[in-house]
Computed example of a mutant assay.
Amino acid sequence: MSQMLDFNEAAAKALEAMYLTPDVVAQSARVLDLLAPRPGEKIIDIGVGPGLLAEDLARLVGDTGRVTGLDMAEPMVKMARTRLAALPQADCVVGEATALDFPDGAFDAAVSTQVYEYVADMPKALRELHRILKPGGRVLILDTDWRSVVWHSSDEARMARVLDCWDGHLADPHLPAKLGALFARAGFQVRRVEVVPMLAPQWQPVSYAAGIMRTIHGYARANGAAKGLGAEEIQAWYDDQLRLAERGEFFFSVNRYAFLATR
């Protein structure tokens, strides 16, 4: 059973800071390129988070379009609503990916980044997504497969234990490998799949790598005991990464996978 992250107000602010790093901003630009939103379209952002992608979408669909952000975490919805307040064509609601409270065929397109890996019942979630899209509607889903991580460490066995603990916060840490077949069973046609790497060949304090390192550290401290990880071992892992950064030996890479499909 996964120990999901608690997306409270503090976590929402930390996630916003990570989403504003240059590498995640570049990822969002690629997502927009692939989805290709058009003026006048109605688009849903499932797992809207702090609303950064929804803000871009709202500007691209213009005054004649509509963007709806959905998130199960109220602090995220509050943050997104604040960001979108000046854009009347955008709104946000609290909701679940497996129970989308919208009419059939309500949207021209949907986007979801780093969300479905948290969803336990993917067949149900994709059936719901299929239902709310118009015939021919597009969906862009991007998620991480944590088997792709390459992360330098002075103690590879300890790194493996920490990452095994981290896997526990997801319903499926390896979702992309199964997503094509799941799409097909839900009635979608996959049109394109791309690798979107998050690469940090050197230490950069304002980056996804730095943000995820802090997030994993906090998660492991709260949940590591269930995996046999003590506080000293977790801190030793974190301190080792800082020492590697000081010596110019830091390296981190993990792959995200973007799937573009049509209904």
Rank of each mutant, 00 (worst) to 15 (best):
T98V: 12
A110S: 00
V115N: 01
V93R: 11
G105N: 01
C92P: 10
D104C: 00
F107C: 03
G95I: 12
V94F: 09
T98L: 03
Q89F: 14
V111P: 07
A85S: 10
V119K: 07
A99L: 13
A110G: 02
V119Y: 07
Y118S: 07
C92A: 13
A120Y: 13
A120P: 03
E96H: 12
D121Y: 05
A99D: 14
V93A: 08
A109F: 03
S112Q: 05
A97V: 00
A120M: 14
F107S: 07
V93Q: 10
A106L: 04
Y116G: 00
E117K: 11
M122S: 06
P103S: 12
P88I: 11
E117A: 11
V115R: 01
Y118L: 04
D121W: 01
Q114Y: 08
V94R: 09
A90R: 15
D108I: 05
L100A: 10
V94P: 04
D104V: 02
M122G: 03
P103M: 08
L100N: 00
D91I: 09
A106E: 10
A110Y: 01
Y116V: 11
D91V: 10
V94H: 08
L84Y: 11
A106S: 14
V115Q: 02
Q89E: 15
A120V: 13
G105I: 00
P103C: 06
Q89Y: 12
A110I: 03
T98E: 12
F102T: 00
M122H: 13
Q114W: 08
P103K: 06
A85T: 06
P103Q: 09
D108V: 00
A110W: 02
D121C: 05
V115W: 02
V93N: 00
S112K: 06
T113L: 11
C92F: 00
D108L: 04
A99W: 07
L87P: 07
V119E: 04
T113C: 10
V111Q: 04
D104E: 15
